[in-house]
Amino acid sequence: MARIAPLTLLWLILPPLLWAGNAVAGRLAVGTVSPLLLNALRWAIAALILLPLGWRILQAGSPLWPRWRRFAVLGLLGMGSYNALQYLALTTSSPINVTLIAASMPVWMLAVGALCYGERARHAQVLGALLSLAGVLLVLSRGDWDTLRQVQLVPGDLYMLMAVIAWAFYSWMLARPGPGERDWPWAEFLMAQMAIGLLWAGGAALGEWTAGAAHLSWNGWVLVLLAYVAIGPSLIAYRCWGLGVAAVGPTIAAFFGNLTPVFAAVMSAALLGDPPRWFHAAAFMLIAAGIVVSSRR
């Protein structure tokens, strides 16, 4: 098995934990903040926080502008698409459907790697994907497989499928940096993505507003929600995810992403006063087994 350093494990575990909170926040925001406006506000606040550290990359003559097309795609896939589509999905789809579709991430990572980057999927990776997916299904079914038969697809499910595919391409692009990008300070590399991604997110929010679908109700709860989604799932999670993908590759990293529904289930249990059940522990072991198997040389 390829050894994963403890610090790398932290980089790969923190994003799913923070993204689980992001899914809960996105669901709670329904009816208070429209999804595309929420995404734009999230990245605008995150950009303002990061600006003191990453402003140099926005100067004329910086290495960003000769490769602006690459960062326009990165910004579209990561900041402009994934979270906007997820927030859209949560307005019409149930949490179980959204998490089921997100659980297919390792499969899409393998497919994108094979089709676009010439990376052949190993048998261990396929087996790891199946084990990890089984763990997620166990959580979603709450130990009762009949629950999965009741799932009905709605338009939000398509949004989430598009989001997962966008994230697979984004992660592979991170794993294939352009010349000299590995030497950029992390804040400048993230700022380059965020600045252009904010244009995509802002354009989508403007379209939502023009269509009369945007709404925002200011209150103390909304401020707390925006602060969380701008700092935790955005700045911290994206930084850690970039480090983790660079260390182990996008395919193995995708298996850690399947910890998100497990964390979400635990959070929901805590918020509802319902203690974790046996299937939470069993699912964690299955997902962990998927990570171990997929990491085998």
Results as ranks from 00 to 15, higher is better:
N97I: 11
N97F: 06
E119C: 07
P63K: 05
P52D: 10
P95M: 08
Q125R: 12
A72N: 05
A134L: 13
L100E: 02
L127M: 11
T99N: 12
I45Q: 06
M105G: 02
A103H: 08
S93Y: 09
W68G: 00
R56M: 00
I101Q: 01
Y82L: 15
Y87D: 12
Q125P: 10
G78V: 10
P63D: 04
L64H: 01
P63V: 07
L51S: 06
A46W: 02
G80H: 02
L53A: 15
Y82S: 12
A121E: 08
V112W: 07
A84F: 09
A114F: 11
Y87C: 12
F71R: 01
C116W: 15
T92L: 08
A103S: 15
P66M: 08
G61M: 10
L74N: 00
R56T: 01
A124T: 14
L77Y: 07
I101M: 09
L137D: 02
L100T: 14
L130T: 13
A103R: 03
L90Y: 10
I101V: 15
V73W: 13
I49M: 04
W65Q: 03
T91P: 07
G80F: 05
L58R: 01
N97K: 09
A46R: 11
A129E: 06
R122L: 10
R122T: 11
L137Y: 01
M109N: 11
V112I: 14
R70C: 00
L90A: 10
G128K: 08
A114T: 04
V73G: 03
R70M: 00
R120P: 06
A121P: 12
G78S: 14
L76E: 07
L53W: 15
A114V: 04
N83G: 10
I96T: 14
L138E: 12
T91K: 06
L133C: 10
L51C: 12
W65P: 00
L110D: 03
S93A: 15
I96E: 12
W55H: 13
Q59V: 03
Y117F: 15
L131T: 03
G80V: 02
L138G: 06
L53F: 15
P52W: 09
L90Q: 08
M105D: 05
T99C: 04
T99H: 14
L133R: 01
L50Y: 02
T91D: 11
A84E: 02
L90E: 13
I57E: 05
A44F: 03
A46M: 06
N97Y: 09
G135C: 10
G61S: 10
T92F: 04
V112D: 09
L76Q: 05
L88F: 08
